[in-house]
């Protein structure tokens, strides 16, 4: 796939990141630019929010917030591969590469990932290298610490875990 570069990257946290209480200039950066996330916000609100919720909470379609959601998609590539084929149901795969990348950036940002200098590009290897849990982990923890409301947002893990949780399992090497 052709890589896409989106203008001059800049390092301002978007309004939505501020809502979640993240600090500007954090050390971690999620492989997308603030510009992409901002464009993604507009695209998401126009194309996705009707079912997935204005704050990604659902409930007409599955919610898109939480470390477990991030874990299930595994990488930016996993999320991109799905939505760029199947979403939105009224026009599956029709939004174009750039828009899907922007939406992935926005979903990551809303989950606590920080924008950086390097844009997300439609290169399967590069997308697969962006680990969603890792990129959103610190942001989620930070927002959890910020106040009680966001603790709930980040998810209560005081529930039973898989029998294999915490155990080292074989990892796939393609």
């Amino acid at each position: 796939m052709r890589a896409i570069h989106l203008g001059r990257p800049y390092v301002l946290a978007s309004a939505s990141a501020l809502v979640l209480g993240f600090s500007i200039g954090s050390a971690f950066a999620g492989g997308f630019t603030a510009e992409q996330a901002e464009a993604g916000r507009t695209a998401y609100q126009a194309e996705c929010a009707q079912c997935h919720g204005a704050r990604l909470e659902g409930p007409e379609a599955p919610g898109l917030i939480g470390q477990d959601v991030m874990g299930n998609w595994s990488t930016a590539g996993g999320l991109y591969d799905f939505i760029s084929v199947a979403m939105p149901p009224a026009a599956p795969g029709k939004l174009g590469e750039e828009t899907y990348l922007n939406i992935v950036a926005y979903i990551m940002e809303m989950n606590g990932a920080q924008p950086g200098d390097e844009p997300l590009v439609a290169d399967p290897d590069k997308l697969a290298a962006v680990n969603l849990v890792e990129e959103t982990k610190e942001g989620a923890a930070q927002s959890a610490a910020a106040n009680q409301e966001t603790t709930i947002e980040a998810g209560d893990t005081n529930v039973p875990q898989a029998y294999t949780w915490g155990k080292e399992l074989p990892q796939y090497k393609p």
């Binding site: 939480g66 470390q67 477990d68 898989a162 949780w165």
Partner: peptide
Amino acid sequence: TPTQSEFTAGNA
């Protein structure tokens, strides 16, 4: 594709 993720309340 199997993944490993920490379970949270109210989620699958």
